[in-house]
Structure formats: C-alpha cells, structure tokens
C-alpha cells in the first residue's frame, strides 16, 4: 500500500475521533506517525500537533454552531491549563516514568467505567 493511502486513513481516523470525542486525535496520531509512516519519535509529537490544530479549528466550528459554548468555564479551565502546561513541561522532564503512565491509565479507566455505566 502506498504511503499516501496510509497517511490518508490515519488522518481520517484521527480527525473523526477528534471531532466526535473532542479529544484523542493526538493520542492516535503520535503512534500512527511513528509506526505507519516512520516519523522519528521526537518529531512525531510536534507533527501530530501541526495536524490536530487545523482539525480542531474545523471541529470547533460545528460545536460553536450548536450554541453549547460555556465561555466562562473555557476561560477558567484555559488559565489553569496554561499554568499546568508550563509546570508540567519543567517537572516531567525529570520525573516522567513508565509507572506514571500506568497510574494515569488506571485513573482514565476508572473514569471511563464511571461514564459508561
């Protein structure tokens, strides 16, 4: 199969998930770029970001059209998020470890089960 075909499928799946669930495009793209398209690991995250940003702009257009936009919440969450991102980028350079991913994976699974039932 051609690389262009695989790239298109990867884009389609990541875009659909990101639009439908409002998240997860990057989570799909990073391993897909690495494994299916041979993008180097340290470039995969940045490249995924360059893909997900335009996709998000398109998706947001539909969400805004529906009129469900809690502006106040977005403002508070974003201000916390910017600060958290800054802290995270300093802190996690030193302490990121496989077990940290597993712990958060367990938190995510618990939240997922709560949302399903």
């Amino acid at each position: 199969m051609g690389k262009k075909f695989i790239s298109s499928i990867v884009g389609l799946v990541a875009g659909a998930a990101n639009g439908l669930f409002g998240s997860g495009g990057g989570t799909i793209l990073v391993p897909a770029l690495e494994k299916c398209l041979g993008v180097e690991t340290h470039k995969a995250h940045a490249t995924a970001l360059a893909v997900v940003l335009p996709l998000t702009l398109v998706s947001v257009f539909f969400y805004l059209g529906k009129g469900q936009t809690p502006w106040g919440t977005i403002l508070w969450v974003s201000s916390g998020g910017v600060l958290g991102g800054f802290i995270g980028s300093r802190l996690l350079n030193k302490i990121t470890a496989p077990w940290l991913h597993k712990i958060f994976g367990i938190f995510m699974a618990a939240a997922a089960i709560k949302m399903i039932f």
């Binding site: 389609l12 490249t47 969400y63």
Partner: peptide
Amino acid sequence: VKQGNIEKRSLPPVIILGLAGAAAGAFAAV
C-alpha cells in the same frame, strides 16, 4: 516550527482527509 520538529513531508494527505474526518465527527457529535 522554529526548532524544525515538524515532519512536513507527511503532512498533506494526513491533514486533507483529517479535515474531512474532523468535520464529519463534529457534525455527528453535536
């Protein structure tokens, strides 16, 4: 972009179909 971390060669097909998926996914979600 400044640090040259973006793999530009891979981008066009991923983004083109990605945009279609993003529109379809969001259309369904709302």
